[in-house]
């Protein structure tokens, strides 16, 4: 008993535990302790009766009712509409993968270029020095590698655009 009193201290705490018990969400140990307190402690018993009555009244309250035309109004409204396609249908996975491939290609291209700029003969075994100030950007746009890289991206972009336009055309024609 004393143990239970220590376990549940304060009126708010008591109410919270009683609500858990009434709502049926108290765990087995808590439920047993509350049952014991309700049976043995007058204060707990009175509070339990109060809350139980509120709970029962809350359950018996009635729902509000809309006008009698409610269902008819909704049905009239939806008669003009169509169910929208599910989000997963109109988000084409190929487009997502295409976009991902585009960015991965850019990142890989940049990494390959940066690694190519590293001076491996710095004399130190621990530190790899990259002198960003000495990066020659004008060289980037003239080298064969970058030209190929840019062409690849353009082809990917055109493929995505084509995919997007053909999807749009399909939707418009209802195919």
């Amino acid at each position: 008993m004393q143990e239970n009193k220590n376990f549940f201290s304060g009126e708010e705490d008591m109410e919270l535990h009683l609500w858990n018990y009434i709502d049926g969400i108290a765990e087995a140990k808590e439920r047993t302790a509350i049952e014991k307190l309700i049976a043995e402690n007058a204060q707990w018993h009175i509070k339990y009766s109060e809350l139980l009555e509120v709970h029962q009244i809350l359950n018996s309250t009635e729902l509000e009712q809309p006008s009698l035309r409610f269902t008819k109004n909704v049905m009239e409204e939806i008669s003009k509409l169509h169910i929208a396609p599910a989000a997963k249908d109109y988000i084409n996975k190929k487009i997502i993968w295409g976009i991902a491939a585009f960015f991965i290609t850019i990142i890989l291209g940049m990494l390959v270029y940066l690694v190519g700029q590293i001076s491996w003969s710095t004399g130190s075994a621990d530190v790899i020095k990259i002198d960003f100030g000495k990066l020659n950007y004008s060289k980037v746009y003239s080298s064969t590698f970058v030209n190929i890289f840019m062409m690849l991206n353009i082809v990917l972009a055109l493929m995505l655009l084509d995919k997007y336009l053909s999807n749009k055309r399909k939707k418009l024609t209802g195919a």
Binding site: P66, S67, F70, N73, V74, E77, I78, L81, H82, I83, A84, P85, A86, A87, D89
Partner: peptide, 19 residues
């Protein structure tokens, strides 16, 4: 207003039923 919104809820639900 409540009735209008409640009707709108059912219309929205219908439109998104595939989801």
């Amino acid at each position: 207003d409540a009735e209008e919104i409640a009707q709108d809820v059912f219309v929205k639900a219908y439109r998104s039923l595939a989801d």
